[in-house]
Simulated assay, not measured.
Amino acid sequence: MAEPKVRRMKALFLMFAGAISLILLVLGLYNLVEFSDSVAFCGELCHDVMYPEYTTYQASSHSRVTCAECHVGSGADYLVRSKVTGIPLIFATITNSYERPIPTPVKNLRPARDTCEQCHRPERFAGDLVRVRTTFLADELNTEISNARILRVGGGQEGVASGIHWHVAAKVWFVSQDEKRQEIDWVGIEEDGQYSQQFVDPTMVGELTAEQISTERQLMDCIDCHNRATHVFFSPEKLVDAAMVEGSIDKELPFIKREITSILYPPNPSLEDAYTALESIRDFYQNNYPQIFNTKRDAIEKAIVEAKNVARLTTFPHMQVTWESYQDNAAHQTSPGCFRCHGKLVEKTPEGTGPTINVDCDLCHVELEQPIK
């Protein structure tokens, strides 16, 4: 009688131990998956690779949004996809075979409607917004120049939307055979299941077939313009301007913008070299402006600290990243941006081709004529 009882006890023990092991395994896997979606995993564990992106992310307006919320989103489907597509990246990191800088755009990125639009609502009509931009010349007085512009953000529901956000409120399809999407070959506006208008690169007329368009077309979304929504690599000039507006760099210090930007451009061989070079600002004022050096010593020290922060946001030699490495399609000062389509593509008509897409600047923004004092 004792032997069956012992066997039952063993069986119960094994079942109990198995259940505990299974629970621990599930919890362990859950914690592992959760950790792999964390900012610490993306930005710190892969420190060398992601250091530029992680650094600019921390200084961005999305710094409280986790990496996974934008790059993965909710749901098991994209969670599994992200883990599978991440395996080669982990291997590249371990073997030090990753590309420098990291290539963009991210392939197979989840549509912004599933990520960005969980917080942002382009269908909400925003109307016109006024933006003031202040810059400083690199002269002795750090001459301040402020200009205002009206941004026609617009937005609204499909069919009645207007302004810049019309592009995502409407159904706008495009074809780009350029890996970086800086060259747009075709655009089609869909209404009621068919194209109400089509535009094509004049050099591609007759080359793009309907079948090719059908298989290669992509629906335009937020990221096609806001492609640097978080990982923005600003130039030293822009960062110094922002710091002077904010007051963390005293604009009353003679030549302060010139001194900082001349040290940080071109980029230094290392961040340590940049930090060392910026210490010379102290000597500049001591030798050339002794009175200011004596009366504004705290402001000079504060400016050096902020200049080092600018260096931290612009010096990434290991990944070969500078403020010129990536195109920013939300504007068109340093990249084609809007002009990938506007002023380039011509309308397809039954007779052949028509006018180009309107390139009137006032479609998106209106510059106020008088600078703001």
Rank of each mutant, 00 (worst) to 15 (best):
S74I: 07
T209R: 09
A138F: 03
Y275H: 11
A229P: 02
S280P: 01
A299K: 04
A242I: 06
I23P: 02
D360K: 12
E252F: 06
T93S: 12
V65Q: 08
V359Q: 15
V6P: 00
C70I: 12
S21C: 10
R133I: 15
S270N: 08
S270K: 06
M204T: 06
T95A: 07
P111L: 02
A307Q: 08
V187R: 04
R312I: 07
V6C: 05
T356Y: 11
I357Y: 03
S146Y: 07
V6I: 15
Y265W: 06
S146W: 06
D221K: 02
N309Q: 14
H120F: 05
P350N: 04
P371Y: 15
Y289D: 05
K5Y: 00
P317F: 05
K344T: 09
Q198R: 15
T349A: 10
A76T: 14
D328R: 13
E158M: 12
R340H: 06
G127Q: 13
S60Y: 06
N142Y: 09
H47D: 15
S176H: 01
G337Q: 08
L129C: 11
E3G: 01
V200I: 15
H231V: 06
C222E: 09
R217N: 05
Q118Y: 01
I223F: 13
K296G: 00
V39M: 12
L253N: 03
A161D: 08
S21M: 11
Y289A: 05
T349K: 09
V172A: 08
H342A: 06
Q291L: 14
G73P: 09
M319D: 07
L141A: 14
I304F: 09
R133S: 15
L22V: 09
L345I: 07
P236D: 05
A299G: 00
I300N: 02
E191T: 12
T334V: 12
G354K: 10
S248Y: 06
Q320T: 09
Q218H: 05
C116A: 08
S235Y: 03
V153G: 03
N142K: 10
F41E: 04
G154H: 02
S196N: 12
F16C: 13
L29W: 10
S38F: 10
E158P: 08
Q212L: 15
G188V: 09
N294F: 08
T143A: 10
I292P: 03
I292W: 06
I256M: 12
D37F: 14
C116M: 07
T276V: 13
S97L: 13
G163M: 05
H167R: 13
N287L: 13
Q157I: 14
C70D: 09
E246P: 06
C70F: 07
S63T: 08
S162K: 11
I164S: 11
I150G: 05
K251D: 15
L79R: 10
N358A: 12
P202M: 07
T85M: 03
W173Q: 05
L32M: 10
D298W: 02
Y98N: 03
Y275G: 01
T85E: 06
N147E: 15
G354W: 10
T261G: 04
P355C: 03
D178T: 02
M244D: 07
R81P: 01
V33C: 00
I94P: 00
